[in-house]
Simulated scan of single mutants.
Amino acid sequence: MARLPRLTLPGYPHHIIQRGNNRQMIFADKQDFETMLALLTESAQKFGVAVHAYVLMDNHFHLLATPSTAEALPLMMQAVGRSYVRTFNQRHGRSGTLWEGRYRSTLIETERYLLACMVYLDLNPVRAGRVAQPGAWPWSSHAHHLGQRSDKLVTPHALYWALGNTPFAREAAYAALVQASIGHGEQVALTDAALRGWALGSADFVAALQKKSPRRVTKAKPGRPPSVRKIMVK
């Protein structure tokens, strides 16, 4: 069965996941992490992608981003992927592929899932057992949203700005969201939607998206379509 093209539409937030091949390490040291952040910053600006949140783990990374055009996100990810692999291979004396195929991504409903997705990304290192608190992991946008660091890669989303009228109020409100965490169901939904490429949101949101894309935005219902039965008239 031919794989579906990625679901990418401008103006919508996308949750993106890129994994290392066979779950292998893609960041071996501090310089690797810094190289990826520099490439993402450069390419996001070049191609018109607003990155709202991110987390870089040892063998994968997540982005939450809104592309300005239909081609902006694919172009950014292609440029970053190629440049990073070339640099990584040269530094570590290796060759061949680094990524587990193409990156995975999908659209999420802004009002319902954007802040939840930001929290999900921040808590990724905690769930993985790498740190006890999200602030202890330096390779995410968590510190930026708490006002502890200025991150050139990050373009805060309007929903983040709406958390408070002052920087202190926004940072405190967001810190409270992270402290409250998100439910297991939301974690699973965010991961599954991105990996499978199906839009995540309410029925109305999905229906509106489907009108804008020729590609199916949700999984088809299982089973055969209902057949038309002939009615025998005596």
Rank of each mutant, 00 (worst) to 15 (best):
L64F: 05
L123M: 15
T66P: 03
R23E: 07
R82K: 11
P222Q: 08
L4G: 05
A162I: 10
F47Y: 15
W198P: 09
H62Y: 13
H157Y: 05
M232S: 14
A203G: 08
R196I: 08
D151T: 01
T166R: 03
E171G: 03
E186G: 01
G147T: 02
G20S: 04
R112G: 05
Q133L: 14
A207L: 12
L146P: 04
Y113L: 10
A175K: 06
T191G: 13
I108W: 02
I108D: 04
G201W: 08
K221D: 11
T41F: 00
L4S: 14
Q18M: 09
Y113H: 14
H14V: 01
K234F: 13
A199G: 13
L121D: 13
L37K: 03
K230Q: 14
G11V: 03
A194I: 00
A28D: 07
M232I: 15
A180H: 12
S141Y: 04
S105T: 12
I182E: 05
T110G: 04
R6W: 03
W137T: 07
G223E: 11
S140W: 07
H60L: 07
V55Y: 04
T66S: 08
A65W: 07
E111P: 01
E109C: 07
V80E: 01
L163P: 12
F47N: 03
Q148L: 15
S213K: 01
S83N: 12
L200M: 12
A65C: 10
A143R: 01
K30Y: 08
L190H: 10
N59R: 01
Q148E: 10
K219A: 15
T41E: 08
Y84A: 00
Q31K: 12
W161F: 15
A180I: 02
M25I: 15
A70H: 07
E111T: 09
Q78S: 12
A70D: 09
P138N: 08
Q24N: 14
G183R: 07
N89W: 12
R94Q: 13
E34M: 11
S181D: 15
V80F: 05
Q179A: 15
A175C: 05
Q187M: 12
S213W: 08
P156L: 10
S68K: 00
W137F: 09
K30Q: 13
R102F: 13
A70T: 11
L190G: 08
I17P: 05
G183Y: 00
E186V: 10
I108Q: 05
Q24K: 09
H15S: 01
P222W: 06
Y160E: 04
R94A: 14
V119N: 00
E42L: 14
T69W: 05
R94F: 14
D32G: 03
S181I: 00
E100N: 15
P67G: 07
D151G: 08
S227W: 12
A207E: 14
